[in-house]
Design a protein around this nucleic acid. Structure first.
Length: 378
DNA sequence: ACCCGCCGGTGCGCCACAGACTTGG
DNA sequence: ATCCAAGTCTGTGGCGCACCGGCGG
C-alpha cells in the first residue's frame, strides 16, 4: 500500500511535490500549494505505483501502473519481458487543480478523491489554460477541456518522433494550472510506433480505467534512500554513468538506437534542447541540479539510459567509456546529486529564512535577502 | 615544451534555529 | 519500565571563496 501523506499523515499520499520533497494526499496538496504564489508554482505529479516514494514519470499501459524513472527502467529495461510495454508520459502540474481537473489530467486514475476547492485557488483554476500544447483535441466538449488535451499524456513515441516538441512551460496564464509534460526516455522497443501521434481522448480509453491503485502495493520493505541500491539494483549506478564526462556530449547528439522490437523503425533520439523541461529548469548539463523540479531527471532528458549498448555510431568505444565512467564515479563521490530532503519542515524554514550573503541571520536582524519578498532591511 | 594568467565549473563552509535525538533523574 | 526535562545534534539554502582544469598567449 502507498505511504501516507507527509503532511496530514492520515490520507494515502497520491501526488509527489519535488519542491517540497513530499508525498501528499490531494487534499493537503491543495491546501499546501494554495498558500502563496510561490507554492502554487510547485510542480507535482503522481506518485510511483511501485515504490510509492518517487514521482511517477510514465504510465505503463500494459501494467496499468504509474512508474518513476527507476522503476520504469528496472521493469522495462532492454531484454526484460516487459521491454516492449507501451508507456506514456505522465504530466505534472502546478497551481491548484480540482479533483475533476486532475481526473482530466490523469484520465487513467479512476479514484481521484473529491477535494474541496480552495478559495485561494478559485481564480487560478478559472484561468487555467493550455495554449500551446502541440497536441490538441478540438472535439472535446468539456468546457475546460484544454486540460485534457495535454493531460492525458502524450504517448511516448510522440516525444520521440516529434521534431520540435513545444514547451508548455510558461504558456499558461500566470495563475493557472500548468501542465508540464514529463520528458521520458524513449526506450528502445517500448513504444509501438504505429500508435504514435494519436492524441488521446477520454473516448479513446485504450487502457482500462480500473483503479490503478487496486494493486498499489509494494512489499513491506523500507523504501528509504538508504537502501536504494538494494531495492533497485544497479539503477543508481546507471544513473551515475549518465554524467560521465565523456558521455555527456554524446547524449546530446541525435542518434539511432537499436529497437527492442524488430518490427519498429529505429527512433531518433531528441536533442536535449528540444525538451520542454530544460527550458523550465534552466538546467545545464552536467551540473544539473534542477532536474528534480519537474520530476525529470537528466537521464530522461538524455533520452536513452546510458547503460544501453551504444549504437553503431556510438561516440565512444568501450575502453574510453570505462575510463570516463571511472572518472565520473570519482567525481560523484564528492557530489550530492542525489540530495534527499529528510526534513521538509527544515527545508520550509530555510526557504523563508532571511539571509546576509547567503548566511542565515538571527530573527530581527538586518538582512540583505528575503526569499519571500526579496527585500532588504537596510 | 614550459610558464603564466584568465575563465568557468565545482565543492565546501558559514550562518540561525526548529525539531529530532540523547541523556540523566 | 515509563515519563519528563534538559542538553546536544542535525539539517536546511544562498552566498562567497578556494580550488581545479582547460585554454590561449
Amino acid at each position: 500500500m502507498g505511504a501516507l501523506c507527509d503532511f496530514c499523515g492520515e490520507q494515502r499520499s497520491m501526488v509527489y511535490c519535488r519542491s517540497d520533497a513530499a508525498s501528499l494526499c490531494l487534499s493537503c496538496d491543495r491546501n499546501v500549494h494554495s498558500a502563496n504564489a510561490l507554492s502554487r508554482r510547485h510542480t507535482r505529479t503522481l506518485l510511483c505505483d511501485r515504490c510509492a516514494s518517487q514521482p511517477a514519470m510514465v504510465r505503463c499501459l500494459v501494467e496499468n501502473a504509474s512508474l518513476c524513472q527507476n522503476c520504469d527502467w528496472n521493469g522495462h529495461s532492454a531484454g526484460s519481458s516487459a521491454a516492449g510495454h507501451k508507456r506514456q508520459t505522465i504530466n505534472c502540474y502546478s497551481g491548484c487543480p480540482s479533483s475533476s481537473e486532475l481526473s482530466k489530467i490523469w484520465t487513467f486514475v479512476s479514484d481521484i478523491p473529491n477535494v474541496a476547492p480552495e478559495p485561494n485557488c478559485e481564480q487560478g483554476i478559472s484561468m487555467m489554460s493550455i495554449s500551446d500544447s502541440g497536441v490538441s483535441n478540438q472535439d472535446n466538449a468539456a468546457g475546460d477541456s484544454s486540460l485534457l488535451d495535454i493531460a492525458s499524456a502524450t504517448l511516448m513515441s510522440d516525444l520521440g518522433t516529434a521534431g520540435k516538441p513545444k514547451s508548455l512551460i510558461g504558456s499558461s496564464s500566470e495563475a493557472g494550472v500548468n501542465l508540464l509534460p514529463l520528458a521520458t526516455d524513449q526506450m528502445a522497443g517500448s513504444v509501438d510506433s504505429t500508435s504514435a501521434k494519436v492524441p488521446y481522448t477520454a473516448d479513446q480509453d485504450m487502457f482500462s480505467k480500473d483503479s490503478i491503485y487496486e494493486d498499489f502495493c509494494v512489499d513491506d520493505v523500507d523504501l528509504s534512500f538508504e537502501n536504494y541500491e538494494e531495492l533497485f539494483g544497479t539503477s543508481h549506478i546507471q544513473t551515475e554513468q549518465l554524467f560521465d564526462d565523456a558521455g555527456i556530449d554524446s547524449y546530446f547528439e541525435s542518434k539511432e538506437i537499436p529497437s527492442g522490437n524488430s518490427d519498429e523503425q529505429p527512433k531518433l533520439m531528441q536533442p536535449v534542447t528540444s525538451n520542454a523541461v530544460s527550458a523550465d529548469s534552466g538546467m545545464s548539463i552536467p551540473g544539473a541540479k534542477d532536474y528534480q523540479d519537474c520530476g525529470v531527471s537528466p537521464v530522461l532528458l538524455m533520452g536513452e539510459p546510458p547503460w544501453h549498448p551504444p549504437g553503431p555510431e556510438g561516440s565512444f568505444a568501450g575502453a574510453t567509456r570505462d575510463d570516463a565512467i571511472t572518472r565520473y564515479k570519482e567525481k560523484k563521490k564528492r557530489r550530492k546529486f542525489d540530495k534527499k530532503i529528510r526534513y521538509a519542515s527544515r527545508k520550509a524554514r530555510a526557504d523563508v529564512r532571511k539571509r546576509v550573503k547567503g548566511r542565515f541571520v538571527k530573527a530581527g536582524e538586518a538582512y540583505d535577502y528575503d526569499p519571500l519578498c526579496e527585500t532588504r532591511s537596510y
